[in-house]
């Protein structure tokens, strides 16, 4: 057992856990952040995607104890809440980019990070390629791609707005 300290959604948390505890287990079982999901055991499905140190990662691929050195963790619970959805969450809602909602947190985190990394400069081909590691069984990806492109466009509009006007 060892103490692991992580900053998750802006809050610093310490828990005593087994050394083999994965980041996703730390989030779900020790912090009660059940928005991050587990859909496979081979790091293929992407349902557990969170943002660690500014990059989207599959939280089943890293030990909780190793995560601390990589920076702060942002999960779906830290992105926006029901009263104030983040732009990506809002785009998913508006474009019906979720059905059962199980892959959604991972999908939203991956998409949010993608828009940030590309500063909103996305095409359908880039979105499809970069979401290859996030599986969805309900939507056929059609509306997910639409939502991400819409959020990217909104991101560009905000970025290019003249200073002082928002």
């Amino acid at each position: 057992m060892q103490d692991v300290t992580l900053t998750v959604n802006g809050k610093t948390e310490t828990r005593r856990v087994e050394g083999r505890t994965l980041l996703v287990q730390f989030l779900r079982e020790h912090l009660g952040l059940t928005g991050t999901h587990v859909g496979c055991d081979t790091s293929q499905c992407g349902a557990c995607t969170v943002i660690l140190g500014g990059r989207a990662v599959k939280s089943c691929t890293i030990l909780a104890s190793a995560a601390a050195a990589r920076g702060e963790v942002l999960t779906i619970e830290g992105l926006g809440d029901e009263e104030a959805l983040s732009p990506m969450q809002e785009a998913f809602h508006r474009h019906h980019a979720l059905q059962c909602g199980f892959c959604t947190p991972g999908m939203v985190m991956a998409a949010h990070n993608m828009v940030q990394r590309h500063e909103g400069e996305l095409t359908e081909a880039i979105v499809r390629r970069e979401l290859e590691g996030n599986l969805c069984r309900c939507t056929g990806y059609h509306n997910i791609v639409k939502a991400v492109l819409a959020a990217a466009e909104a991101h560009r509009a905000v970025a290019s707005a003249p200073a002082g006007q928002d």
């Binding site: 952040l33 059940t34 928005g35 991050t36 999901h37 587990v38 999960t75 779906i76 619970e77 992105l79 926006g80 809440d81 029901e82 959805l85 969450q89 998913f92 809602h93 508006r94 019906h96 979720l98 909602g101 199980f102 959604t104 947190p105 939203v108």
Partner: peptide, 21 residues
């Protein structure tokens, strides 16, 4: 009419209630 879904907000913010939760 294409009414936006009532279930979305909880699912988009990590508040879904799946069995393993």
């Amino acid at each position: 009419k294409p009414v936006a879904r009532k279930e979305d907000k909880r699912l988009l913010t990590g508040k879904g209630r799946f069995t393993d939760d």
